[in-house]
């Protein structure tokens, strides 16, 4: 598989929670228009690292990040960077579907509204429809855009959250175990969606399921105890890992 342009480059990233050293010296390059999977046992730091990429860790007082994380060559932890502006470019989908207690329409329109992406109602309608289509949920909800988002099924809610995230036209989409709360059918739908999203965005997905990583990602990073153990082509990681720890995890001996 040929290399694409680097979207995010992380160099020597350290993350501390109070006195705990949660992420140790991580270097990783995330390519544009690629699905990168972070795998590893629970508590290995993969979600923490993911949350560094759009500075969601800022909301936690005791969390401290060192090292560089460059988006398009610009350090996102630079003093001049407004996390609000950053998060508009780096969207995020969470583990548990978290639609706002608003209508489906308002859920999707939320991002465009706060970022001022639509000049008028027609444009906003357009964005909402486009986003819902991209999240492959349009056909299911187009007749009830005014219904509350919380009334959808789990899989629909998660796709609604994805639609909500893509509505702000991000360049990177971070997904933190997006399928862990879903049943197999909904999971399949979301995975299919992730594959389609790859054509427009750089997608980073944290997952517990190695099968899922194998199915949806092109690049895989294996985290263990806060260290990035191995990073490479998904196929290679799963068939021929270099590090014995990766092999142990994949074959089910640790985790």
């Amino acid at each position: 598989m040929d290399s694409k342009a680097i979207k995010i480059a992380a160099n020597n990233v350290q993350v501390y929670y109070g006195d705990t050293h949660a992420i140790k010296d991580v270097d990783v390059q995330i390519e544009d228009k690629t699905v990168t999977a972070f795998i590893g046992p629970s508590g290995c730091g993969k979600s923490t690292f993911l949350r560094c990429l759009n500075r969601m860790n800022d909301t936690i007082d005791i969390c401290r990040v060192e090292g560089d994380i460059l988006l398009d060559g610009e350090d996102i932890y630079d003093k001049r960077v407004d996390p609000v502006q950053l998060r508009a470019k780096v969207g995020m989908v969470f583990q548990k579907p978290n639609p706002f207690p608003k209508s489906i329409y308002d859920n999707v329109a939320y991002g465009p509204r706060i970022h001022g992406l639509a000049k008028n109602k027609a444009e906003l309608d357009d964005i909402v429809e486009k986003s819902l289509r991209r999240a492959a949920i349009w056909d299911e909800v187009k007749d009830r855009l005014d219904a509350p988002g919380t009334g959808l099924s789990g899989g629909q809610q998660q796709r609604l959250c994805i639609a909500r995230a893509v509505a702000t036209e991000p360049e990177v989409l971070l997904m933190d175990e997006p399928c862990s709360a879903l049943d197999p059918i909904a999971t399949a739908q979301v995975e299919e969606l992730i594959d389609e999203l790859r054509s427009r965005y750089s997608v980073v997905i944290v997952t517990h399921s190695m099968q899922q990583a194998a199915r949806v990602s092109q690049k895989t990073a294996f985290f263990h105890l806060g260290n990035l153990v191995e990073f490479g082509e998904t196929g290679q990681i799963f068939t021929n890992p270099e590090d014995p720890r990766t092999e142990s995890y994949i074959t089910g001996r640790i985790g």
């Binding site: 969470f94 978290n98 639609p99 706002f100 939320y110």
Partner: peptide, 27 residues
């Protein structure tokens, strides 16, 4: 109000006050 609500809004690039006004208070 669950933390996931805040995360959802902040993750979309809303400021804290926008999150409070548009998501937390209505909830």
């Amino acid at each position: 109000v669950p933390q996931t609500m805040r995360d959802g809004s902040l993750g979309l690039g809303a400021t804290h006050s926008e999150t409070v006004r548009n998501v937390i208070l209505p909830a």
